[in-house]
């Protein structure tokens, strides 16, 4: 278990501080990320969990300053990677960081790969750009990498185009590209959502092994607590662009504090559940991100809400060395006699 604590004196690998991202669209200003802060140590794995529109993806792609087609975007706060604020780098400097020191994997490998370029060359291209390796050296290293990520007959499949690979094999190629330059941080955005369940397990296992072998830090963005449980040391739960709870993964399953986290955990399959168990859904819908929210964004759906929740935004309350919950009732909830060690059980 790698905690949130940093070694004395050494700065964390990644420090995101009060990051806010908003897009100016025809329908008004959309706040995609609102006040996100966290740190990540070397070799540590963080799971960022949330539903659609929670800001989990934008928050993470902001590290790489990838905003898609939106050019009218306002970013405030800081993203310090090894002490350098990435938001202040020039585009040229940034392109050395992307794919070099920070690798990335996306949900859909088919749209992320160049359809008319042999897969091997796509890996080699990244190696040559970032490490200045010769053509031959890059090719040899690429075959090793493809072999390592589990592409059978890697030397021959080097020359094939992405469409002749299965979804799982394409995602393995994406992993090879992402780790080719031995990045210090790998960002994986829903890396297995489009894959079959047995293949999902294989890819998650591969990411976990590579992280340990290469000493990479990992950010896994997912909607699935199961993915977090299998890959992450710590977890950050986001809702409506804001961080709700941040804690070690094993705390999450024993001492989840935030009502939203608790609500989500009730919906995850568990050994203890019997079949046909009735689910207790979180009623209602997430708020529109174009409307200003004065208080806690979860307040309209929260069964524990008090008057203050609608009026004032709760700050992150520190409940332990690496456990924060943005809830006005956090301390009270943490003291409960019947701690939610089994929040999934019916009352």
């Amino acid at each position: 278990m790698t905690g949130a604590g940093t070694e004395a004196g050494a700065p964390p690998l990644l420090e995101v501080e009060d990051l806010s991202v908003s897009f100016n669209t025809r329908r008004g200003v959309v706040r995609a990320v609102d006040g996100l802060s966290y740190t990540l140590d070397r070799g540590e794995a963080l799971g960022i969990v949330g539903e659609s529109g929670s800001g989990k993806t934008v928050g993470s792609l902001s590290i790489l300053r990838l905003f898609g087609l939106f050019d009218d975007v306002t970013v405030t706060g800081a993203v310090r990677f090894e002490g350098r604020d990435l938001l202040r780098l020039s585009e040229t400097e940034m392109s050395r960081v992307r794919g070099g020191q920070i690798g990335m994997i996306f949900q859909d490998p088919l749209t992320s790969l160049n359809p008319v370029m042999p897969v091997g060359e796509q890996v080699a291209e990244s190696l040559r750009f970032h490490t200045g390796a010769s053509r031959d050296a890059a090719r040899r290293r690429t075959v090793e990498l493809l072999d390592r990520v589990g592409i059978p007959d890697a030397a021959n499949r080097y020359h094939e185009l992405p469409h002749s690979f299965s979804g799982g094999m394409r995602q393995r190629v994406m992993v090879a590209i992402a780790v080719a330059c031995e990045p210090k941080l790998l960002i994986a955005d829903e890396p297995t959502t489009a894959l079959d369940v047995t293949v999902q397990a294989q890819i998650l296992l591969l990411l976990d092994e590579l992280r340990r072998e290469m000493g990479m830090a990992l950010i896994v963005i997912t909607h699935d607590f199961g993915v977090v449980a299998a890959t992450a040391d710590r977890v950050l739960v986001m809702y409506a662009a804001q961080p709700m709870e941040h804690c070690p993964t094993d705390h999450l399953f024993q001492r989840a504090n935030h009502p939203y986290t608790e609500g989500l955990l009730r919906l995850v399959p568990r050994f203890e559940h019997r079949a046909h168990k009735r689910l207790r859904p979180i009623e209602g819908q997430p708020p529109a991100l174009t409307e200003p929210i004065a208080g806690c964004p979860f307040e309209p759906r929260c069964t524990h809400a008090v008057d203050r929740c609608a009026a004032e935004r709760p700050p992150p309350v520190r409940l332990g060395p690496s456990h924060h919950s943005a809830c006005w009732l956090a301390e009270e909830r943490a003291r409960r006699e019947t701690a939610p060690d089994k929040p999934w059980e019916q009352p």
Binding site: V197, T198, Q200, A201, L205, D208, D224, F225, G226, V227, V228, A229, A230, T231, T249, D250, L252, F253, L265, V268, P269, R270, F271
Partner: peptide
């Protein structure tokens, strides 16, 4: 392969 929100995922 059902990923549980629990320890022992690995």
């Amino acid at each position: 392969a059902i990923l549980h929100a629990d320890t022992g995922g690995h």
